[in-house]
Amino acid sequence: MKRLLKIYMEKPELAGIAFLVLLAIVFQVRSGGVFLNLQNLQGILGLLPEMALVAIGVTLLMICGEFDLSVGSVFALTPMTMAVLLEGGMPFIFAFSIGLCVALLIGFVNGYLTIQFNIPSFITTLGMLFVARSITVVISGGFPPLLPNGAIPKWLFTSYVGPGDLIRMSFVWFLAFAILIALLLSRTNFGNWVRATGGFLPAAQSMGIPTKRVKIATFMICSFLAGFAGSIQVMRLGAPLPSIGEGMELQAVAAAVIGGTALTGGIGTILGGIIGATLIRVIDNGLVLSQVDANWFKMALGALTVFAVILNAWLRKKAKSIKVETGK
C-alpha cells in the first residue's frame, strides 16, 4: 500500500489527471451540461493538438536541461514559409517539407549557439524569438499570402474523423507524435541520454554520452514539433497570420511545468506535458462556457502554474520520506 502511494506521489502527471477530471466535473455543472457535449469536445480536441505538440517538444527539451522561447515564432515562421512557397506555385509536399526544414534549422542554430558559446539557452532562444518573428513578418511582406484553393490536403490534416466526427486528423498526428516521442524518451538509449544530460551533466559527460549532439538533436525535435503544430493551425484557419503563436512559448513552459517537468532538467514525462496542455485548453474553454470574463484566463493559468510546482515539490518530498526498503 505504502509502495503504491509512493509510486503515485512520484508521478505528478497523475495529480494532473485527477485535477483534469475535477475541472471537467466543475465546468460540466457550471456550464449547464454544455462542456462535455459533442460540439464542445470537438472544439477542444480540434485545438488541443496545436498547443500540445508544442508542449511535447518543450517538455522534452526541458528534461534535457534546456529551454526554448522561440517555439512561438517557429510556430508562425514554418507555415508562413510554406504559404509563401505555395503561393508561388510550389506543390504542397515540397512547400511543407521546406517549412519543416526551416524549423529544424532554427532548432539547430539554437542548439549550436547555446553549446558552442556556452550561453544559457534562455538567451539564445529569446534572441531567436525576435529573429524568427521578424523573418515571418518580412517574408509575408506585410500581407499574409492566401493559401491557394485545394493546395492543402485537408483530409490528411484538418478534416473531422472518428465516431461522431469527434476529432480532426490533426489529433491523429498529435497522438502519433506523442507516442513516438514518449517512447523515444522512455524506451530508447537516446531517451536515456536526454534524461542523463538534463539530470546531471557532469555524470553524463564522464560516462561518454555525446551530450552536445544530444542537446542539439533535442532542440531540433522541439523546433520541428512547433513548426508542425503551427502548420496545422494555419491549415485549419486557411490563412497564415504572422502573429500566430505569440505567447505560446510561455504557455508551453507552463504546460510542461504543470505536468511535473522540473526547470532544472532530468525530471518529467511527455504525458505530463500533454496533460498540462490539456488543462490549459480546458480552463480556457471552461471559463468561457461558465460565462466567466475571459480575461480571468491568464489569472487561472498563472495561479495553476505556481500551484502545480508547489504541489509537485511537496509530493516529491513526501514521496521521498515514505520509507520503502531500498536496501541495508
Binding site: F190, A196, G199, F200, I209, I267
Partner: peptide
Amino acid sequence: VPTMSIARNMFIGREPIKYGIGGIGIL
C-alpha cells in the same frame, strides 16, 4: 544521475539495445 534509476545508471552510455539503427535503438 540522481534522478534516474539504478538500472538506467548502470548502463548510461552503454545501453544494451534491441533493434537499433545508427546506434539509436530500443532499450
